[in-house]
Every structure is written in C-alpha cells, then in structure tokens.
Design a protein around this nucleic acid. Structure first.
Lengths: 218, 218
DNA sequence: CGCGATATATTCGGTGCCGAACATTCGAGA
DNA sequence: TCTCGAATGTTCGGCACCGAATATATCGCG
C-alpha cells in the first residue's frame, strides 16, 4: 500500500481532510498559512496528482462539485475511513522508523577531495555564515509564534529543523577549522595533490593510492 | 545548466570519470566499494539515464565500445573539459549554499497532533533505540576505517552523518521526555482532544481553535 | 467604467526516476 | 559435462513529479 505512494504531500492532504472537507486549492492555501510548506514539498502539479492517486486508492473521495459565484468549478474532497486509518499508520511508521535520506551536502562531502582544501575551507565559512543567518531567522519566527500563544507542540517541526541546523553549523565550523589548521587526517596529502597540478585536476593515481587502504578493508 | 540536472548521482559519475574512464557498471561497483552509495542514491535505472543525460549535455563522452571476452558489449565513458568544469562548479555550489531539504520525519512532526500524545512518546522511544543502534554501527565502521589507515578526509561524509544522527537522537530524547512529563507547551490540550474522542478522531473545531493564534500571527 | 493586478482553481506535457526484467558468462560442484 | 547460482551489464515501461500555461472572477483605481 504505502510502498508506491511515498510523497509526504499525500500525508498532508490526509491530515487536512481529517479536519474538514476541502478542495485542492484550499488545501494548498491552508498549508501555506500554517507554514507547513516549509516541512512538506508543495507545488500545484504534485498536489493534484497526489489527490487523484488518493482517490484511486479509496483513501479520500469527492464530496461535491460546487460552483461558488461564477468561479471555476471545483471539487471538494473528504477523507474516508480507510484514509483515516492509513494516515495514522503512515504517521506511526514515520515517527517510529528512521529512514535513510540523502542530503545533497552529504553527497558533496563524499567527493570533497575533488576541490582544493583552501577553497573548501573558504566555501565552508560562507556556508557557515548562511546557516547562522537561517538559524537566527527561524529562531525569531518560533519565538514570535510562542509569544503569540502558539503551544510548542504545534510548531515542533520548526524546533527539529532548528536543532538540525545548529548541528550542521557546529559540524561545518569544526571541519573548516580542522582543514585550516591541518588537524584533519589526510589534509596534508590532499593539499599536495592539488599543489602539484597546474590545471586544477588532481592526479588519479595518487588519489587511488591514497584510498587503497580503505578498499582493502572492505 | 545545473537547473534541470539535480540528481547527485550525476555528480558521482563526474567524480568517478575524473579519476579514469569507466563503463556504467564499473561506476556502480566502484561506488559500492567505496561506500558512496550510503551518501548518493544509487540504482541501476537512474545510473544509465543520468549517464545518457550527461552525454547529451556534453559533460561526458563515449571513449570506446568494447567487448571483453564474450561479455555483453559495453560502453566506456570519459569526462570532457566541460564536465570537469561543471563538477567543480557544482561541488562548490553544494558546499557553499545550504539547500532546503524535506526529511520525512519533519513532515511527520508537522502533523504530530493527529496521533495521541502517549502513542507518540512510545513511538519516539522506539525511534530513539533504532537511532542509537545506527550510531553505534556507523561509529564502529568509521573507527575501523581509521584504524586501517584511511585519512579522515576520505570518510568525512560519515562524520557528517554521525553528527546529524546524534543531533536527531538528542532531539527525539528531549521531545519524548517533554511529552511524558508534560513540560511541552500544549501537551495538556493535545491530550484532552484525544481523551474525548472514542473513535480515535480528534475534534476538528477544537483543533482549529487551538491553532487560531498562530494563524492570526501569520 | 475600463484596465491591469491579484486571487482562484485546474490542466498538461515533458522529464527524470526506478524497479524489474532481460541477456550473457563464469565458476563450482554433482 | 550438466546445471545452477552468482556476477556482469543493459534496457524498458510506467509513473510520480513539477513548472508553466490556462482560464476566469474580483477588486482597486484613475
């Protein structure tokens, strides 16, 4: 069941229709108002295809097709019993079981030796500055919401994002420093590769020799 | 240029061909040997379509079409100058600029009030246990590689993942405790919703009233 | 009272992604 | 030497995704 439908936007639709019947456009506006579009990737095309898919699997159904004033015709959907069950099951799965994600920054770190170490240190400091600003903005937003009386449980996803951003900031800080002061293992070797090359391309053979121990270790 | 091609697997291909020409199957095996498939989503179908796309954009090119022994015919690719430039540009972008990702756990946190608080606390403790095991396994792997002589820079992506996992563990720990002991803002209200409902479905009107302050603050 | 800007609401075409199927060869053992 | 499983490689069909286009109504403003 949940194997094929992996888009969390479908979970958002189920959660919204749990509260009350809506048409797709209202869903998107509600998600925006509540800032859920910060946590769930939202765009129009995906929303309509996700809604179709949920209908096809009997998790939601068309409640009515209305025309308010002379606005374009629109279809209002409601959640089914199967949909309510699926929402709870899916939520429980997501909370209980960590799923491996593939953040782009991790991919970049995988191939970091491709860039010269001093360039990397510089780029990391730029990243650090951006993260710092992002954290300040997010923390300010959360504080404002709290001050307005929003209970923490209704903005817990922001607290999570803040925690992750801070952890990344600390990592980036540490890495930049370790590269700069040479305490990171292998940074001397890394620098040598790039120092020798005039065209910006490192020597493949030297690289291969460097990673050999790891390959042996399997 | 980089707007349309977002799959980090393409970056992995460029990084591999930077070292030496390869055919697609060898790329996939090399990525596995070096554990890069932990950092970059790798599957056969995507690999071949990504290679085609890179060829189409002139970032790599077919070096030869060989037949070794009586094995199936295979095409060996090499990186072009444009590809080498693109690899450096792309890497620099990824290192310098944080991109907003949408982890599934964050999506689930967005809709957490849908589940009863005591269930959530229990699920979070299960998640905590899994994270703890994952961290132990990863830390052991990293230590083993280091002991075998692999410089830290060649496994820096694992250090990043470890840092993120530990941060998530701390967050999950704190959240579970705050729900259990009632110190999380709004947990009493949250519990009331679910206590009143017999069918497992919370009252939409009460929920709407609860989040009203946030919407005002919009 | 006419015009552009904004809000409402959905459709559509292209593309990237992915799992599974396909095709072949090699090695080990009965 | 027959067979079966593992390794070597690639292709394919379907579907999810996404951004841009489409279409209409309302509103503010001169």
């Amino acid at each position: 069941m949940a194997r094929t439908r992996t888009n969390p936007l479908a979970l958002a639709v189920l959660a919204l229709l749990w509260e009350r019947p809506m048409h797709p456009y209202e869903m998107s506006m509600t998600l925006r108002e509540r800032r859920k579009d910060e946590s769930v990737r939202l765009n129009f095309g995906s929303l309509y295809s996700v809604v179709d898919s949920l209908v096809k699997h009997g998790l939601i159904e068309a409640a009515s097709t209305e025309r308010e004033g002379n606005r374009p015709q629109r279809t209002i959907y409601r959640i089914t019993d199967a949909g309510a069950t699926e929402a709870v099951d899916w939520m429980s799965d997501l909370v209980r079981t960590p799923v491996k994600e593939f953040p782009q920054f991790e991919a970049a770190l995988s191939f970091l030796p491709l860039l010269p170490p001093d360039d990397v240190a510089r780029l990391l400091r730029l990243r650090r500055a951006t993260l710092d600003r992002d954290i300040t903005v997010l923390a300010t937003t959360v504080d404002a919401a709290t001050a307005q009386g929003l209970p923490a449980i209704f903005a817990i996803e922001a607290a999570y994002e803040l925690a992750m951003l801070r952890a990344e900031l600390a990592f980036v800080d540490g890495l930049a420093a370790a590269i700069a002061d040479g305490t990171l293992g292998g940074v001397d070797m890394w620098r040598t590769f790039h120092a020798r090359s005039t065209d910006g391309r490192i020597d493949p053979d030297e690289l291969a020799a460097a990673i050999a121990p790891y390959l042996e270790g399997g």
